[in-house]
Design a protein around this nucleic acid. Structure first.
Lengths: 152, 152
DNA sequence: GCTGAAATTCTACCACC
DNA sequence: GGTGGTAGAATTTCAGC
């Protein structure tokens, strides 16, 4: 799929603030309301825009302790792997889970209240999954950049 | 800040689909339009909801090669650290950058078209920053979960 | 904090170029 | 792919509880 300058601009705007109205964009882009509307519709229809969401401030909801947790499984039998993936999905603390190359099998991004809550997550949830080989935690000291925006 | 069941429900809905109308939520929650509207406004005003964004499908825009890049700096003099952070922010390929505990100083989440583009990013951009000590790349084989949603 | 209703603004579709 | 116009729906405000 090809995107011209206008599509790129629209995508950038909506990734910044999805409440921007077509009218505002039309004005900004020097186009009519409908022209912008149809472009947005097309981006939605083709799945380029896959979702509109509200982003929540983790500080404000007491979930600002973020860690990356790297995991090795004891074995890689397909059914155990699938079972692990299914179970890890259920944990509310796990926002992201990636199957990765390298020394570890998975990288998890975990958000909790504080170190105590993280320890409880490890002890009571994660390491209760019995095919977990090892878990290595890396704590976020500071978020330099955390963007859901991507330049198209 | 305290959230009752209704606030939690509203936050969950808006984190799933921010286009959900107040009317729909009002119906679902058994409240009036205005009641829901005022709660949403309060969540926005207090910064609990910090942003509304459109999420873009990385496959569709040819940026589905995702890597974590762990970085060590050669030294940690404050001004060099700040300079590194400032420069890394400029790279469009870097969606996230965290200062972390552990063996490495930073974890970057990088999105590009393919391995070739990633190599070019490393060679022409990242490792051109001269206080980079070492860079260790981990490639995402599969996204098991990638959620911007958090249970409040 | 909630309700119902009214004012304003946008969305979404139309005919047409 | 674009325009201008418009019906219906959504957002936003208001008086009152």
């Amino acid at each position: 799929m090809k995107f011209d300058k206008i599509d790129q601009e629209i995508l950038w705007i909506l990734q910044t603030d999805s409440k921007t109205t077509t009218k505002q964009m039309a004005h900004q882009l020097g186009l009519s309301n409908t022209a912008v509307y149809e472009r947005v519709r097309k981006l939605e229809r083709t799945g380029v825009i896959k979702q509109y969401v509200a982003l929540v401030d983790f500080e404000k909801i007491d979930k600002s302790f973020i860690a990356f947790c790297q995991i090795k499984l004891v074995q890689h039998r397909h059914d155990l792997v699938k079972k692990f993936e299914k179970e890890v999905l259920q944990f509310d603390e796990v926002l992201e889970c990636y199957n990765v190359s390298g020394e570890y099998d998975y990288i998890l991004r975990v958000a909790v209240k504080n170190m105590k809550a993280y320890r409880e997550f490890l002890n009571n949830k994660l390491t209760m999954l019995d095919y977990i080989g090892s878990a290595y935690s890396t704590f976020i000291i500071n978020e330099v950049k955390n963007s859901v925006q991507i330049r198209v």
